[in-house]
């Protein structure tokens, strides 16, 4: 494992005073705090590093030990002793931020100071680590609200998937993360939905787009065509003279609007006029007659 330069992390010189350390920590914590950087893994990681650096440099005993052994930390005798302490568990104050991207100290810290850090023995309750999971669904799966059972960290979790969930959308299930520390609340479970494309129905927001073939005769003369929608078949009137690529909108026949009951997007049907390719003699003659009219 690599040596971690805590001074560099806090952007400090080696002879920084306690006050300078405090100021540097506050400045960087404000910049990288997970609550101020939602969905930013990089910032969360940086925040953990800042906390770890502050944990060491703000404690005179730890700082002295760190300064003494620094890069040669692997050869210090007391490290073996500290390693034994690792079994006490690595839960720490920073687990409170586990939900923002994992919460342990670096291996470097654990080897040098034992697992967890001094404050881990405190009695303050801290939130458990959050879990993340990805759920792959088909488009039709998210057309209606339904329940699904997931196995997360060995536990069965039954969740309700609301209709209209977007591809890439995340939902939070409070309390389904790991158990809290010192009677702290459990972490949360974040589920990201990955919705596979449907070969027939293309989704764009809450609207659905489909391509429907139309034979030449119906396109020219008009008629009726039965079209499959997400909630059943509908009969559409095709006006005479319908062009290929012309489209029509079926209001309210699209995708359900997320968490808005009885609200739906629209369905857009694009006609693809199919020109006959194998004409028999009679048909050919008739088309020729038509062309001469």
């Amino acid at each position: 494992m690599d040596y971690v330069d805590y001074y560099k992390i806090l952007e400090l010189k080696k002879d920084a005073t306690a006050d300078e350390i405090k100021k540097a920590y506050r400045k960087l914590a404000r910049k990288y705090h997970p609550d101020l950087n939602p969905n930013n893994e990089e910032a969360n990681k940086k925040f953990q590093q800042i906390n770890e650096a502050n944990e060491v440099l703000s404690d005179p005993v730890k700082r002295k030990k760190y300064d003494q052994h620094g890069k040669d930390w692997q050869h210090a005798d007391q490290f073996n002793q500290q390693r034994q302490n690792q079994s006490r568990g690595r839960n720490s104050e920073y687990d409170a931020f586990g939900g923002f991207g994992g919460g342990d100290f670096s291996d470097f810290f654990s080897s040098m100071f034992g697992g967890g850090g001094a404050r881990s023995s405190g009695k303050s309750p801290f939130k458990g680590q959050d879990f993340t999971a990805e759920l792959q669904l088909n488009l039709l799966d998210v057309y209606t609200t339904h329940k699904q059972t997931l196995t997360v960290n060995g536990k069965q979790v039954r969740i309700t998937i609301p209709a209209g969930v977007e591809n890439g959308q995340k939902i939070k299930l409070p309390g389904y993360g790991s158990a809290g520390v010192n009677n702290g609340p459990p972490g949360d479970l974040f589920i990201t939905f990955t919705i596979a494309d449907d070969p027939k129905f293309k989704r764009k927001g809450n609207d659905i787009y489909i391509n429907e073939e139309l034979n030449l005769y119906t396109a020219v003369l008009g008629g009726e065509k039965i079209v499959e929608t997400l909630n059943g078949k509908v009969k559409l009137n095709v006006p005479a003279g319908t062009q290929s690529d012309a489209s029509l909108r079926l209001k309210g026949k699209g995708f359900p609007v997320y968490k808005k009951e009885n609200q739906f997007g629209d369905l857009y049907v694009k006609w693809q006029v199919k020109v006959p390719t194998h004409l028999n003699k009679e048909q050919k003659e008739l088309f020729e007659k038509l062309s001469q009219l």
Partner: peptide, 18 residues
């Protein structure tokens, strides 16, 4: 804005597919 970006990305994917 993050939601808007997500939706726009989805629309862009759709556009590329079509």
């Amino acid at each position: 804005m993050q939601n808007e970006v997500l939706q726009l990305k989805n629309e862009l994917n759709y556009y590329h597919q079509v």
